[in-house]
Design a protein around this nucleic acid. Structure first.
Lengths: 349, 349
DNA sequence: CTGAAAGCGCTTACAG
DNA sequence: CTGAAAGCGCTTACAG
């Protein structure tokens, strides 16, 4: 017994279900029922147990629960990156939704897309007893991890496109990148550009939805379809793509697979003395917090990665058992992609 | 996904220690000894057990181990942000080191610095049986969480400064921000600037090391010490600080608490028609992958957050038991902060 | 060097 | 509606 009045069992042993049972004058099974809000406990008994739980500061041992239940109520996120805006924001969304339901969230990083590394990462998380897995499958490493998940695992995924969904058997979520890319492309065309060039982020599939949307918009406007430039995720890679593009004086409009690439492209344009947007227009993808302060402020597509992460968690959550949270609780809806027009776009010179 | 919704109701019983024992013709206790590489098992027995483990594809049930041991070999990271460069990179470093030692890593986000939110977040992770906690305490929320961790928990922290270390009893790691800020400031002074202005990120303590280093460098050069401008973490906040600063034509050199702030400052400068670096020099902090492609390319301080994360994990790892990994294994050393000189700095106009 | 027993803190049938 | 029993898959003394 300590001074504050809270009773702690001797020698650091934490309070268990049995301590609560003793205090409440019931068996520990009854305590278990109350904890799990199972029906069939007399109201007065329930009250008493709850009171004892409160008094003793009892908290269920998740480890013991997991062992007895055969499965932990937890989710671990597998991702190839922690720093990219979309990835980090999706992780935050997943964590937020998971926390709201009391699910711990783990994280595993896919260091490389080699079969060996993927195998190791998947092995580390593929224990059905450890709960569910969410893989951020925006890249090759992620898609491979998804494919390598053993049957019997509860898995959900954030995928690049609707098509990517057909490559595996797991529930998944995706943003409407195709429409978003179409809108951005059509906007540039509407400004008077003859065509729009595309700098691509790596795709987990052969053709990404962003690229498909861009192409579809060009085709439906009877505009020429230039070969897309394949880049990585980094500003540096965008810079290299930008150098290629600036060499061609015909280029007046560039759509980039993400804001980092756009940053690199802007750098290359400035280096080459091409004015933005007077000579060349640039559009990004993501609307990271930085892009508004690029030079010039970047026109880009805002994507709700946090909402996507929340939705994915809810999907995976459903794999466990009926939700305990009241259905009428306010649920943050996912925002549709929006074209945010700023200062890198205008009519061709 | 099947129609019922529950796709993995604790399905096929996985292979246990007893199955291995039976196959190897020993008792399951012996299998346990082999798994935990305890001394006192005849070599031939050990070999046989290992062979059976391999054949059956046995993998220890971490949950059962945690329950029996009284504590999980795991670590969970508490952070106020998942997207900021330093935070996300530190998380990656922690995960990398943890993975190398087979420790699962969890993540909890501190949504807000209110006592209520902190209490909830700390409660959720403060179970000594669940393993250790690492808190990224670069902000008020983090420092409060650190202070609120109950005794008996194994806790480590990434803190802002050497002083922050004295505010709690946990092992922690920090970067030498003070020297780095001094170096950056001295560099600007050496260029001929009369003084250097400072735009501060939020500090978890009263005076951050970055700010202290900046001040010390000014004082040791007998330069005037302007009032620092308090900002947030965002580019927008840097932009607002930049607007204040551009109003004063005396300002020729600005040190920013991070690269995002520098981005906003650059934007404000450009908007005001002040040339960088001809009229005003700007230095950032972090060297995020983007800063090399700012307009102009940002002079900044490179900080090894990944190494810091790895080091913090190792510290916390020591709270469990003697390391099993051979000591002569190659260990990635932490890099000292480096001033990376690019295009935003030069002599005053 | 190896095995039998007890127990970690729960949940889940099964009785009553 | 409530309790006694068994068991989840391990580890940890304790014997031998």
């Amino acid at each position: 017994v300590n001074v504050t009045g809270h009773i702690f069992p001797a020698s650091g042993r934490s309070v268990s279900i049995r301590d609560v049972a003793r205090a409440a004058g019931v068996s520990y099974q009854t305590v278990s029922r109350v904890i799990n809000s199972q029906a069939g406990v007399r109201e007065s008994t329930r009250r008493q147990v709850l009171r004892s739980i409160e008094e003793l500061g009892y908290r269920p041992n998740r480890t013991a629960q997991a062992l007895a239940r055969g499965r932990a109520r937890a989710v671990t996120v597998l991702t190839a990156d922690t720093t990219l805006y979309g990835y980090a924001t999706a992780l935050r969304g997943i964590e937020e939704a998971a926390r709201a339901e009391g699910f711990p969230v783990g994280i595993g990083v896919l260091d490389s897309p080699t079969p060996r590394a993927i195998r190791a990462a998947v092995d580390a998380v593929s224990d059905p007893r450890a709960g569910a897995v969410i893989v951020i499958a925006y890249d090759v490493a992620g898609m491979r991890a998804l494919a390598a998940m053993p049957p019997g695992m509860a898995v959900g995924a954030l995928v690049e496109s609707a098509q990517a969904r057909h490559r595996h058997r797991h529930p998944c979520v995706w943003l409407d990148d195709r429409s978003a890319a179409m809108e951005a492309t059509a906007y540039l065309l509407g400004l008077g550009h003859r065509t729009v060039h595309y700098v691509a982020i790596p795709s987990s599939t052969r053709t990404s939805d962003r690229q498909a949307g861009w192409k579809a918009a060009l085709e439906s406007a009877d505009a020429p379809v230039p070969a897309p430039i394949q880049a990585e995720w980094t500003p540096r890679s965008g810079y290299q793509a930008g150098r290629q593009l600036t060499a061609d004086k015909q280029v007046t409009a560039i759509l980039c697979g993400n804001d980092d690439l756009a940053l690199g492209v802007l750098y290359a344009l400035r280096e080459a003395g091409r004015a933005v947007p007077d000579e060349v227009s640039v559009v990004g993808f993501d609307d990271a917090p930085q892009s508004e302060f690029y030079t010039p402020a970047l026109t880009t597509v805002r994507l709700d990665f946090a909402g996507l992460g929340r939705d994915c968690f809810r999907l995976v959550r459903g794999l466990f058992d009926p939700p305990t949270a009241p259905a009428d609780e306010p649920v943050a809806l996912r925002e549709a992609p929006t074209l945010v027009i700023r200062d890198t776009t205008g009519p061709p010179g």
